[in-house]
Design a protein around this nucleic acid. Structure first.
Lengths: 207, 207
DNA sequence: ACTAGAACCGACCGGTCAGTCGGTCGGTGA
DNA sequence: TCACCGACCGACTGACCGGTCGGTTCTAGT
């Protein structure tokens, strides 16, 4: 698998991918414990035996699914971090990418918080590290630059990045979509709130 | 229970309360599915049969526990909403009350987000309503006043209240405690960020 | 065509856990 | 002191689910 990534997937790889793809919406919709291996296998068009041919355990299937997703997100968000422009522009780029992700992939990022205390030891550590690398650390890098360049007030970049993530999660809700509408307005809302706060601007312009 | 709250609890009420008190730390530490009724009963000093004498199901025990807690929080936060002062002062009062709650009670508020998709129908609705009444709606009331009085820029008060809650949850983390230290500094951080944002102040004062 | 091995099947096992039920205990009123 | 009843007990049940395993089918190389 390491020596040959150029051509089409093997049958085994295709089935593994199909199983993971089938598991994704199930784990988004229901708790880890409430998603059975039979459900996943059924949704993927294999039997439980087939599933266990590709994954040694339910837990390892879950971890594979999450690591897969974090890797994709990591690649996606890395681009915004590397892009030129102001801190605000780069944060906007990253957030826009996130908001324009399909619903399912956006929700996956929340699973790590919901399910993290199910796991212990190695699996838990790997999940946490992969998540932090994919999202908070990318934001933290941009924020760190922003502080250095004077675009942001001095402060702990990690706490600021978590705060930013928290604000983004708010506008992902159904209600925010109804009130704020499409991506651009939700994006502006998050950036305005993060950079300038909720107090009225001293200059008092209307939007 | 409605007609007689003056004197000491009956034995039955005391046992119910003991069971709920025993369940609280267990549900905080582990997922709903991973906390067994035997564990709860054991921690409460009764047997499973005794537990089921007081609660018809595990789910109803969980719901009772949560509704109990939300009711207490509702009473607590109501005071800050009713208190005089600026929007910022009232938000500070409410947030300080929250931050000074014992760890266990603070964490309980997060359970509703973690476990809400376990339940369906009536129980789910009651949990959501009780939570929103206890926390976001109290904050929303203060924010609504703030917008009316010009202390906050116009905006959707519900989204702003959710944003505020999200920012508070960030400073509840272990890391934030290490970086920011005691309650007052974390409180200031949340309020500064919410009201004024992360950008440097135009006047440029240092703290 | 033959065959070795990978992919896949599905009945089954072992363990777990919510919920049950017949019974015991202790307090309370007559 | 005795009868009653709510509180409590704990062994048991039935269903569910993760994981196994012997067997079958598909595929690729010769």
């Amino acid at each position: 698998m390491t020596q040959d990534t150029t051509q089409t997937l093997t049958r085994s790889e295709a089935t593994s991918a199909r199983i993971i793809a089938a598991a994704r919406p199930l784990f988004v919709a229901k708790n880890y414990a409430d998603v059975t291996t039979d459900m996943i296998a059924g949704a993927a068009g294999v039997t439980k035996g087939g599933l266990y041919h590709h994954f040694p355990s339910k837990e390892s299937l879950y971890v594979s699914m999450m690591l897969d997703d974090f890797e994709r997100k990591h690649q996606l968000f890395k681009q915004s971090v590397a892009s030129p422009g102001t801190c605000r522009e780069r944060l906007a780029s990253l957030t826009r990418d996130f908001l324009e992700l399909p619903e399912e992939e956006r929700q996956l990022a929340r699973l790590v918080r919901r399910d993290i205390n199910i796991f212990t030891g190695d699996d838990r550590d790997r999940l946490v590290r992969a998540y932090q690398l994919a999202l908070p650390e990318q934001i933290e890098a941009i924020i760190r630059d922003g502080i250095k360049d004077g675009e942001l007030a001095p402060g702990d970049p990690r706490i600021l990045s978590w705060s930013f993530v928290a604000l983004v999660e708010v506008v992902v809700s159904q209600y925010a979509y109804e009130v704020l509408g499409d991506t651009s307005l939700r994006l502006d809302h998050v950036l305005d709130l993060f950079f300038d706060g909720a107090a009225p601007k001293p200059t008092g312009g209307t939007q």
